[in-house]
């Protein structure tokens, strides 16, 4: 742990975690030490996302989205996006940082214009149930929204048209993911099932979804699903105290990430090369796992309560 060189390198890698203890922590990934703690006093952290330019960290929380400065040591938020009436549960960015999307329990998905912070040009999409998840297609114009009524909406931001899918009755959509190669879409629900669609694109390149596969990923709520950057692996996390990595070639189980008493596994994120994966769980730890061996490599301890959200930015 010599100063200097590594610190520079480490600046490019950002691991942020947050949860129910009202703090957000930044970690030095290889030593497991906490670099910085930010205070998120007003609410729990529902979701975390790092801006594409790695300058800001967005934390979705009750009625607000707070932005923290990653480049300074300011423990307090510097921007507060307000005006939503309930929990904001999802947050994300357009790849150039032009706008931010959010989804909340107030049944609305919103687009926040980030270019000039004074003039707002917002866009809103209302659905029937409280929103659980929002996912942006790599084409940057299709926003997928999943709600508690079990409906997946594809919202075309250019035309404002939308298309609905109901994979299963009486089940909540808990997360949606789209593979980086744009070939697959997946969603998980509160019954632990995982649904896979193949994505094709018609003449005017609008997205067409074809059901392809369905499997029982977990015994209880499946909470998150994420593809690896090379689209070869899919990780699902669950209330059954495990995270499972699946091969997207045939959706066979590749690795089960399990630890005694780790309780609910809320969030996960792959490293840029898909060799490692981070998980966040209710036992108050963020963990780093080796994807190949399934071994636990690091534990990040410091949170006093459940860790429910993590954001990670690797450097290629």
């Amino acid at each position: 742990m010599t100063a200097g060189g590594e610190n520079l390198e480490n600046d490019q890698i950002i691991l942020a975690t947050g949860g129910y203890d009202h703090t957000i922590k930044l970690w030095q990934t290889h030593t497991g030490l906490c670099n910085r703690t930010m205070q998120h006093t007003e609410s729990q952290v529902n979701a975390l996302e790092i801006t594409p330019d790695k300058q800001l960290l967005a934390a979705a929380s009750y009625q607000h989205i707070y932005m923290y400065d990653l480049t300074s040591n300011n423990p307090n938020a510097i921007v507060n996006y307000e005006g939503t009436s309930k929990n904001v549960v999802a947050v994300g960015f357009e790849e150039n940082g032009k706008w931010m999307y959010s989804g909340g329990e107030d049944c609305r998905a919103r687009i926040w214009d980030l270019r000039s912070r004074s003039s707002q040009c917002p866009k809103i999409f209302e659905v029937q149930g409280p929103i659980n998840c929002v996912c942006l297609h790599p084409n940057q114009t299709d926003l997928f929204v999943g709600d508690q009524n079990g409906i997946i909406y594809r919202w075309d931001l250019r035309t404002d048209n939308n298309e609905q899918l109901i994979p299963e009755n009486d089940a909540m959509i808990l997360d949606i993911a789209i593979s980086p190669d744009c070939q697959l879409m997946t969603s998980v629900n509160n019954k632990g099932r995982c649904y896979i669609w193949g994505l094709t694109y018609d003449n005017d390149s609008s997205t067409v979804m074809e059901p392809r596969h369905k499997f029982e990923a977990h015994k209880r709520h499946a909470l998150k699903c994420k593809f690896s950057p090379d689209s070869d692996l899919l990780i699902t996390t669950s209330a059954d105290q495990t995270a499972k990595i699946w091969s997207t070639a045939d959706f066979s189980l590749w690795q089960e990430l399990k630890q005694e008493n780790q309780r609910w596994v809320w969030d996960a994120e792959f490293s840029a090369d898909g060799q490692y994966v981070f998980t966040a769980s209710s036992d108050g730890f963020a963990k780093l796992w080796n994807v190949k061996s399934g071994q636990l490599e690091r534990e990040y301890s410091g949170h006093q309560k459940a860790v429910t959200a993590l954001a990670f930015r690797d450097a290629p």
Partner: peptide, 27 residues
Amino acid sequence: LFIKKDISQAVKKPERKSMLSVLMQNF
């Protein structure tokens, strides 16, 4: 604001070690 990105070029990235893997290996 909403420019459709051409996704036909979304090809698999070449196998390269990420910074995290490098760090983990070094340490």
